[in-house]
Structure formats: structure tokens, C-alpha cells
Design a protein around this nucleic acid. Sequence first.
DNA 1: GATCCTCGAGTTCG
DNA 2: CTCGAGGATC
Length: 682
Amino acid sequence: MRPTASPAARAAKLRAVLHHHNYRYHVLDDPEITDAEFDALLRELKDLEAEHPDLRTPDSPTQRVGGTAQERFAKVGHPVPMLSLGNVFDEEELRAWHERALRLLPQGTELSFVVEPKIDGLSVLLHYEGGSFALGATRGDGEVGEDVTANLRTVQTLPLAIPAGGGRTKAPRRLVVRGEVYMERDAFTRFNEEQLARGEKVYANPRNFAAGSLRQLDPAVTATRPLRLWAYQVVVVDGAELDSQWDALDLLRRLGFPVAGECARLATLDEVAAFCAAWPERRETLPYETDGLVVKVDQRAYQERLGAVGNAPRWAVAYKYPSTEVVTKLNAIGVNVGRTGVLMPYAELEPAQIGGVVVRNATLHNADYIRERDIRIGDSVVVKRAGEVIPQVLRPVPELRTGDEQVFELPANCPACGEKVVRLEDEVATYCVNSACPAQLVRSVEYFVSRGAMDIDGFGIRQAEQFVERGLIKDVADIFSIAAADLDGMPGYQQKRIDKLVAAISAAKDRPVWRVLTALGIRGVGEVVAQSLVAHFGSIDALERAVPEDFTGITGIGPILAGSVVEWFSHPRNRRIVEKLRVAAVRMAEEQVPEGTAGPKPLDGLAFVITGTLPTCSREQAAEMIRGAGGKVTGAVSAKTSYLVAGEAGGGKLDKARKLSVPVIDEAGLLELIAAGPPRSA
DNA sequence: GATCCTCGAGTTCG
DNA sequence: CTCGAGGATC
């Protein structure tokens, strides 16, 4: 994000915002933004202060560890400040951290490392006197925390007396351990479901839940919460010499503390980097949430020499994974016109890295979407690209507003043709109703030639734009009158390419009728509906003559769809298109009448879904084979699906098919089915 | 009239 | 992939 304000103003703004969210998070346990968003803002401030050291103030959020201690619990001073960690986000930054550390140590020093999962929970400090649990405190602001001893006693995995669990190591006279209180994902989900059933407050995530549970004033309530503990650091110990972090973890284990099994001791930074690279897969398999890894210098002697800078130790660093949510600037809102004439606002974003790709645009769907979220032009916005691919603008960060933001309004006129737009009552969308709108024409042409419709090779949005602009295409039927001579001399079109395109267009005249019907772009008529219409009417001519009553009894076609079809054919402009297609010798009728003499087909009445990559043919070819044999091909697995045809790397559809016990077959199984027909089931 | 299911339409980047 | 509208079903 490139702030446009002066660095000083920006830093002040960031400080104020961060203070606010710090309080929400630490004191109220009710954050308004995610950790990733918070981290991003904090990072921006850190970078800014690094660039302009004079902007660093003593009260900057970068200069302290965390929130304020709450009044209602007794305050506890920590024996040593509970520090927080610096972050790195990729291997390069990890190596930079390593090199900085090496520069502070004698030439030739070789560091080894301990890597631990960074658990998303609540940091606590546990004091043991003479082998028994004496005091437990939250981190608070790093210097002073809250006494939550009574609540911590209810945590089942926390040893109240050490050694616990049959450990034979003698307990030190005094021991102070740092650990993380957390909650397993499953327990969290289960608890929230119960809360919902009781009509009580649900928690946003396991971390909030752990925090909220630990700060119950009544320990009896905490006792009902399935909290757990990982111990990961020895802060103070009497009578034991610990040479390394690994030894410390070993001591904790021997004393009966739970220590995460994923902790590893690694001899080189290369191994650390490899461990970090492999972690994203592994973290999925863990029963608890992690937001990264903690990389620590193993040798205690080097830890001491490295010391701390500000509030972060130099001997440890958090390796965090690139967030799937980032805050970036919404520079402008553009408006597209869709095939159906819908005006679609989209966000022009300050380019931002999200999950490995640079995102520049994101759809904003419609005016309601923008209004409900109060998204304004110039806002800092939260953009997500979760597990999916499509970026989404989630919400603005109103605290970062400068006052120059503009409320967005859809234009009253179509951005493409300038005609007045219409917003129908109780409809979300706003339409450009000009049937001659060039933007709609381009989109209609694009849809006509697309894979799901006429499937014309070498014809895409670029061609649609060019041909409409040159006046070659005034309606979709004109596609078939494009001749080689029209393309001659167009930049980028050599003879070979022209021949190919003209041949592809000509070949499309022989497409099955349902594709022609789909290509017309009648509202509500896609592949499946078009096929069922063709099966019933046999030809586009018959459909053109149909009245609403003719549609009754066709499964899947109700009054609305029937109305939509009849309405489409009632426009003279559309009838002209159909006539032009007929003149161009585009197929307008099924080869044989469907209820003809042809014998029953092997796949009659069966519904198929295709997923993944098939070994010898494309998905489209497989779909064609199925249709040829009388079967239906749909997009989503449901209870009505007869077979799922799965190739290499099938994803969610496979899971769903298993759940619904839909039989799964491969390409060979499909061929067999077509040859032999379905097995007669009892 | 309510509920469940299915299909269509639109979605970004490399 | 997700959302919402339309259709089927009870």
C-alpha cells in the first residue's frame, strides 16, 4: 500500500488505529480485524519508522508488547519481560534474520535451531514453587499481566505438581515456564454449536475462545471449557544448567509438561527453510490452529549474546505464512456491462500480493453489496482470496479514513452506450436496457462463441471486441457472415490465422441444436435447460411458435422460464437473428425426431458429472460421448447424479460423491457403460 | 407456504 | 466456487 499522505501523518494515523485494535484484542477480547490485518498494519508502521527513525515515538505500538492489564484480576509483575517476536514472511526474510544474527556473533559461529509450531492461543507464565503450581499469569502488556491462577488450575493438561505423569526428574525449587493456552479446533466447533443451541454467544475463532475462557471471573465456568496447554520455554529455573532450548524442552517433558510433538532441532538454516516450506501441508493435519512457526537459536550462550532489541529477542523469530487476507487501497470503482445488460461495479485496487499472486481487480457485484458494507472510493479495504481463487472485497477499514473518501453511486447512464439505466423494483441488479448497447453486444458475441455454447476455436473476447468495433458484427448471427476478405489487412491476422478462424466459424454451423439455443443467450436458458427444450420441441422453429402452455409438463421448466423463452422470441430483432442463422445454414433442428424409431440408448435417463483430467479425452469430448448415448451432463454432484466420472486430481466433487454414495467411475468405466449399458440393478 | 435441490451467471490471474 | 433465483416437492 502506497500511502498518499505525508509519512508523519500516516504514522500518526497508524499509531492511533493500532492502539485501538490492540485494546479491542487484548483488553476486550473482541477484535474488529483479523490478526493478519493487524500484522499488516503494524508492519507498515514498522517499515515507516525504519525509513524515518525520527517518526518513532515512545508510545508507538511498535515499542511495546501488547495491551493493558485488566482491573478485575490482580496484577502480576513478570520476573522478566514477556517479549513478542519479530516476523518474517518468506525464506529471503528468514535468511536476512539469520545473517543479522551472525554479524553480531564471532566470525565462524555456527548456529543450530529449534523450530516450534506457533500456536494461535493465549500466552501464559506459570510459576512453580517447591514443585507445585503457585501462580499463573497472562502476558498483559509484557511487563505486568493478570493473575489467572484459579482459572489455569482448571486446565487439564497443566501439571499442578511436578514432576507429573510419572516423571522422575526432581523438581527444581523454583521454576517459571512460558506456555500457550489453546483449544483444539474440534472442541471449539462443538462448543460453539452447543452455545448456538442454547442461544448464547458464539466465539469467532479458537483463539478468542481460549482468551475468553481464561478470563472468566468464575473458575467454575473455565473448568467447563476444554482448554489445553503447550509449554515451550523455561524462563527461570533453580539448580539446573540448560545449555540449549532443546534441553529446556527436554526438561519440560521430563517434568510432565505437555510439549508439542512437532518441535524439531535442526542443524542448519537450510533445514529450517525446508521445514518451513513443508509446514503448510503439515499444519492442516494438526488438531489445533497455528499461524506459523517459531524459529529459535538453540544454543543458550548465543541467545544471551544476541539479546533483545526493543521488545523482540534477536535470537528468535516468527515465520508466518502469507496471509490470505490483506489490507489495500481501493483506488477507484469501475463499471462493466454484462451480457444481460447488468451493470457490474468492480474494484480497482492498489496491486497487492495475496496468496502468491498480485491482485488488481475484484468484483463488487452490485450497488447493494457496496452500500451494505459502506465501501467508499479511496478506502483501505480488506481483500480476501481464501481457499478459492476469486478475490473478494470484504469490508473497509473505516479507522483509516482521511475524510477524502467518496461514496459510490452507480451511474445513471450506461458507461458503454450512454443510455439511461433501469433498476427494476425488488431486484438487486441495475440494467442497461438498450438492445443496441455495444458492450452488451460484445459480451453476447463472447458468450455465443464460448466453450459452453458454439465452441468456436480462436474466437474470444479480443475478436469479439475487434469485430464489433469494426462494424463487422451488429448481432450474433453476423458471426457467420465473416469472410476471409473482411479480416484481410487486420493487424495481427496473417493468412494462416484467417483461414483457421474462418474454418472454425464454418464448422460451428454443424453444432447440435441445443448449443445453438444456448448460444442465443435467453435468460435462464443454459446447457441443461436448452437440452431439455430441444428434447421436447425438436427444433428452434417449433420453439419459436410455442405459447406458454406448450411448456407445461417439461421437467425443470416452470412458468418463469417459459415466459422468458416466449418473450425472447417475441422480439422482432431476435426473430431476425434466428432467420439469419437459418439462412447461414446453422443447424436448427434435431437430426431425427426424438420420440422417433431409434431404439433406447444405453445411458437414457442417467445423469453424469465429470471432474478432473481424463487420461485420453477432454472433458468436453467425454460430455459429448455421454450425450450421444442419451445421458445428461451436469456441473454439480447431487443426489440425482447417477455417476461421477473422475479423472486425475478430482477435488471437492469426489468428496461430495462419496458422501452421497454416488458411484464413481473412470474413463474406462464410462466407455464400458456406453458399450454395455448400465448394470441392471435389483 | 416452506424447504430442498438444481441450474445459471459471473468471478481473477497466468 | 459461490450466490441467488426458479422449480419441485411435501
